[in-house]
Amino acid sequence: MATRELICIICPKGCNLKAELDEDGKVLEVTGNTCKRGAEYAENECTNPMRTVTSTMRCSDGTVIPVKTTTPIPKGKIYECMNLINKGVVNLPVHIGDIVIADVFGSNIAVTENRT
């Protein structure tokens, strides 16, 4: 059995979490969390860590616009995701929430700002 100490990134509280793992890396117990999402985070973090990626993308007029993955993606795919974002071009106009690249590691890239 192994123990992993984690800091929860779900909210600004930043709880100190402890996850008990068995030999196969399965999470047996999470302690230190003050909400349900904390336990969920610890479990994911030990098995398949996920992150929301935020960045900017070029627009057709040469400016940049902020974008994000609409849901978290596997942590190991962050740089591949950045490559896709950096290759893409956003055709204006766009409205907040518009998806500009679909199907990115189980998520989508959406703009987070309006631009005419």
């Binding site: 909210c11 600004p12 929301t52 935020t54 960045s55 900017t56 902020p66 994000k68 907040i96 987070t112 700002e113 309006n114």
Partner: peptide
């Protein structure tokens, strides 16, 4: 442009521009 804004207010993680909007 990063996320993490609005958890208390809106119960969701928004980016700065989304929160402002």
């Amino acid at each position: 442009i990063h996320n993490g804004f609005g958890l208390h207010r809106f119960g969701e993680e928004l980016t700065g521009p989304e929160y402002a909007w």
